[in-house]
Design a protein around this nucleic acid. Structure first.
Length: 213
DNA sequence: ACATTAAGTGATT
DNA sequence: AATCACTTAATGT
């Protein structure tokens, strides 16, 4: 197995990687293990090394909707602000598959911010990235563009898994996007007619044309 | 062969 | 875009 230095090579300056290695705790999560749950204190900030983590929030009725996915070298903006303010978590994070991550103690976060330029730009970037993602979602929802959201969702899925064939039921997609299955089925059918995807039972194959959407 | 679950579709709001 | 009601297709027992 690779050590922390190898996994972070190029991401940060060496001095920072050394500190991360000495102070961070390497963790492994099995599929479906819960990283963070509602109301729990956020004591560290996760830095994903491999695998993908699903971050979600529940609405008033108890339906859970997907906020975003974290892939390798991603970190959680939510966790960051929660750590600093010592707030309780308002989101739940679950391992989508087997995940490797480094847990960084919250007391290091702001000292590194001034100490290491690469840390500062990393944190800043992950914030803007997440912000833009959410902005796009809001825009799509405001203009009733569920199709765009679904396409973005499928793209991220294949991107994170590295596969062009996804094992998903229409129902699962609907739940994650906070919609009904019927709507998803129709949207997918359109994409299939346009030769962007092929549909099977519990399986969606993304064709080459899909990427140009 | 039968039951169960996933997906497709027309009509309505 | 959501919901309903119903059909068809795939899978499990």
């Amino acid at each position: 197995m690779l050590n922390i230095h190898d996994k972070l090579k190029g991401l940060f300056e060496k001095a920072l990687i050394d500190e991360i290695a000495s102070v961070g705790r390497l963790m492994h999560l099995k599929q479906d293990e819960v990283l963070m749950d509602y109301g729990r204190q956020v004591r560290y900030m996760p830095l994903i090394l491999s695998g993908t983590v699903k971050v979600m929030k529940n609405d008033d009725n108890g339906n859970e909707i997907l906020l975003y996915y974290l892939g390798s070298h991603d970190s959680c903006a939510m966790a960051y602000s929660c750590c600093m303010e010592n707030k309780l978590s308002e989101v739940r994070a679950v391992a989508e598959d087997d995940v490797e991550l480094i847990a960084i103690p919250h007391d290091k976060l702001d000292t590194w911010l001034v100490k290491y330029p690469s840390w500062k730009s990393y944190v800043f970037n992950s914030f803007t990235q997440r912000f833009n993602e959410l902005l796009k979602s809001v825009e799509s929802i405001a203009f009733h563009k569920l199709d765009e959201r679904m396409i973005a969702y499928l793209k991220k899925k294949s991107e994170l898994s590295g596969k062009s064939s996804l094992s998903l039921s229409h129902n699962q997609i609907a739940e994650e996007l906070g919609t009904s299955r019927v709507v998803i089925s129709r949207l997918l059918k359109h994409l299939e007619n346009e030769k962007k995807i092929v549909l099977y039972r519990n399986e969606i194959k993304l064709l080459s044309g899909f990427n140009q959407l």
